[in-house]
């Protein structure tokens, strides 16, 4: 089986039941993507699949052999990472890789003009837009208030 992660092709011998998340964590040593629930309920496992944010615990590795997977390890000094550092956008850090990958994917969705449940007619990236669009990523430490300015900063405002 083949997986392309952060631009590197890997030949792997995986169980058909192995998820993308378990392939990353247990077989490729890429433990940046976290497992918080294994059920698509927390967002800790968020990675980018062909540029779109996905919960990697819900994807079977065997079904994504042709995809380009980008994990937190593949983000190179991204403005979202800088924003999280500058604004203390985390505490324990366990949800953080997922939050960051999710924010990267989310900013791209905004860029493309995809609406969210709270989008009014303006295309301004308001606080409530960020909160709505990031609500699939839970943070038990409650670091949310600092993630909003972190994401604003990354969005260049």
């Amino acid at each position: 089986m083949r997986l392309t992660v952060n631009g590197v092709d890997h030949d792997l011998d995986l169980d058909l039941r192995t998820t993308v998340l378990d392939a990353l964590r247990e077989h490729l040593g890429l433990t940046g993507a976290k497992k918080g629930c294994d059920h698509g309920q927390c967002g800790a496992c968020t990675v980018l699949l062909d540029g779109r944010r996905v919960n990697s615990c819900l994807l079977l590795a065997v079904a994504h052999q042709d995809a380009e997977i980008t994990t937190i390890e593949g983000l190179n000094d991204h403005p979202v990472q800088r924003g999280f550092l500058d604004h203390d956008g985390f505490q324990c850090g366990y949800c953080t890789p997922g939050q960051i990958c999710s924010a990267v994917g989310m900013l791209d969705e905004v860029e493309k003009g995809w609406p969210s449940a709270v989008t009014q007619d303006s295309d301004r990236l308001s606080d409530s837009e960020i909160k709505e669009r990031m609500s699939g990523n839970l943070c038990r430490c409650g670091a949310y208030p600092n993630m909003v300015p972190a994401i604003h900063q990354a969005a260049g405002r």
Partner: peptide, 18 residues
């Protein structure tokens, strides 16, 4: 700033199962 911050935002910080 948190000393381990750079590790936490890059996925390098290692938790128990890792």
């Amino acid at each position: 700033g948190r000393l381990e911050g750079p590790q936490k935002v890059t996925g390098a910080a290692r938790y128990a199962a890792e």
